Amino acid sequence: MSTPATLRPRDVKAAAAAEHVEDKAFGFWLYLMTDAVIFALLFATYVVMIVGTAGGPTGKDLFSLPHAFAETMLLLFSSATFGVASVAAFERRQRTTIFWLLVTAVLGLGFVAMEIWEFVGMIAQGAGPDRSGFLSAFFALVGTHGLHVSVGILCIIVMVVQIAVKGLTRPVASRLSRLALFWHFLDIVWIGIFSIVYLPGVLG
């Protein structure tokens, strides 16, 4: 077994690069955990404030289950297309990876557009975040998730450019895997929003 002293410079460089990638992966997991805590607090706030309508509209008055279901389908399909892109990246199929990442970005844009449309419609009805504690908590939770999706879309576009310019090198593939974790995490958070916010709001 080789000791550090007998390793060739190329081996030392490769080992350092591998350790650097592992450090970044660990740091990203820490970030995801802090993000999970933020969303947990937003969920808890919403559950507490759900009764604080101040005589204003409730979820049953405002939410559209078909609209929320369509948003859910867009995000679920985007998670699936990102999975296809990840498999293509593992197989070093650069063009296929770029194609499915762009499909993912388009689905994500559709989701964000539907969310903005919902917010604009609610505000036009006088149901903005300043109307009640319930609506403040709703806009904070759903808006924070939408902001994360928007950042994810921007990151996907940056990733497409990196793959097109640099190819599927080890650092690029590592960034792609972390971005995939982030995107799938947002999908899980949305399932929670659909289950805790929209479904009880419409059926309650």
Rank of each mutant, 00 (worst) to 15 (best):
Y46V: 00
D23W: 14
G108T: 01
V160A: 13
I193N: 02
L135R: 01
L107N: 03
I38N: 09
R170M: 13
L154V: 14
P66C: 09
A89Q: 04
A17R: 11
I116R: 06
A164V: 04
P200D: 05
L74G: 02
I153P: 02
M159A: 11
A140M: 11
A14Q: 06
V158W: 10
V37D: 02
T96F: 06
L62S: 03
V158A: 11
A80T: 06
T72R: 12
A5K: 13
L179A: 08
Y198L: 03
Y198C: 05
L32R: 01
L41M: 09
A140Q: 04
L76D: 00
S174E: 03
R10Y: 02
I98Y: 08
A88T: 14
S64R: 14
L203R: 08
R10W: 04
V189D: 01
G204P: 07
Q125K: 12
S174H: 08
R93C: 03
E19H: 09
G204Q: 06
F39N: 00
F82T: 11
L30Y: 13
I116T: 04
H67T: 06
L147W: 11
L135P: 05
W183C: 02
A25F: 13
S174L: 00
A36I: 15
S195A: 13
Q125D: 07
T72Y: 14
T72I: 04
I157K: 00
K60C: 03
T97H: 14
G128L: 06
A89S: 08
G167Y: 11
L135F: 05
A68V: 05
L179E: 02
L32F: 10
A17T: 07
L168T: 02
T34D: 02
L109Y: 09
W100D: 01
V84C: 04
S132V: 10
L176D: 06
V48Q: 05
G59A: 10
V197T: 05
M33T: 11
F90Q: 15
V48L: 08
Q94M: 04
L101E: 04
S2I: 10
F39I: 06
T144E: 06
A54K: 09
L65A: 12
V51E: 12
F99M: 11
H20K: 10
Q125C: 07
K166I: 10
K13Y: 15
F111S: 00
W29A: 14
